[in-house]
Design a protein around this nucleic acid. Structure first.
Lengths: 191, 191
DNA sequence: TTTTTTTCTTGACATAGATCAAGACAATTT
DNA sequence: AAATTGTCTTGATCTATGTCAAGAAAAAAA
């Protein structure tokens, strides 16, 4: 399936749109290919775009005082990725975004999101619902990082997002789950 | 300041509204008093309302397998609180919400949020921006729980939300920060 | 005020998970 | 195919933070 069809399908999981509206909506996006390991956003840059993953995988990560990377999010097909914090607060980003598989993405400027949402109220609704869902999932994740031992966090991922474990190197998964690769390896041996 | 004025001011930090529209918007909300320690939502119930705090303080928390409470969020005046996850997935809530200070709140049914947003596009925009901000803050929080030692998490809270430390018992703060009261006490002794 | 309950502190000890190190694979690149 | 780089595993050890216990202080209830 091509990039724009995926986008349309993704939007239509939440709101209905006409062919005519969709073609105008689509024109706000630009397509980009991102080779594995290439950056979409560097730490220190200001993020002003939102990415929709059509193919491949992106990850966002921060770096702590000792230079250790911490994976914040992993986005496979049909997921959206950005550093909202950097944009909303107009501050340099403290996270980076890169591709962990060759990726096809659609990009839209945040300013254009706002414009588009005024032009198409159903897109305003779409983004509200999209962010609501992402927000609620992230609160669940905070809760799991704080209240579950490493093994349970791994088991939950296995149950809820098995595809990640099949596609993404364990070093990234470990970091996403908030543990070291060594710990994850030992946990997997026991499960 | 009365409850509805606070609500209006909160909305107007993000979008403009006329007197006429606001009075219709206000009519979607109902006011409630919640005494300290009283529940707004119990674990296992389905959450179908969104709360705006006019006065006092709410907290949401989960309970782990051993019966230990984990504070997910603390909401002082002008903050919104709900278990979005329960509503969006129509599942029994795995978090509870109660008052940690006597509270005045405004409640609105989620279904009414959707209706209201169709009637007033600026409210759709308001909620999109509200949730965007909450989402980005929550991602930052995940990152801090995963990448910072307990002492740094405490220092960040001290810098960013000093009011919490003045008003809220440290047992809740500790849990919110993802540590035990004992650890927080020792950290505070050293800072 | 007195009593009861809740919150906070401190010490002794335990432990989940981190760190360090080294080797085995696996996947890219040349 | 060989060389290089990236990923995964395993063992030995360490450490930040948790757990348990007990008392002090503060707040709420009687």
């Amino acid at each position: 399936m091509d990039c724009l069809s995926r986008l349309r399908k993704n939007i239509e999981t939440k709101v209905a749109i006409s062919d005519e509206d969709f073609s105008k909506i689509a024109s706000y996006f630009r397509r980009q290919h991102l080779k594995k390991k290439k950056d979409l956003l560097r730490i220190g840059d200001t993020c002003d775009e939102l990415a929709f993953v059509c193919k491949g995988a992106l990850r966002s990560y921060s770096m702590d005082a000792r230079g250790v990377e911490h994976v914040v999010q992993i986005a496979l097909e049909d997921y959206w990725m950005a550093d909202l914090y950097s944009y909303l607060n107009n501050t340099p980003s403290n996270i980076a975004i890169d591709a962990i598989e060759d990726a096809e993405i659609l990009l839209i400027k945040y300013n254009d999101v706002d414009t588009m949402c005024l032009e198409f109220p159903s897109m305003e609704r779409f983004f509200r619902k999209l962010v609501e869902k992402a927000y609620s999932a992230t609160l669940q994740r905070i809760n799991s990082v704080k209240s579950l031992p490493a093994e349970d966090r791994y088991k939950n991922l296995l149950k809820n997002q098995p595809e990640l474990l099949q596609r993404i190197p364990l070093i990234y998964i470990a970091s996403y789950l908030g543990m070291t690769p060594e710990s994850l390896s030992r946990i997997r041996k026991n499960v």
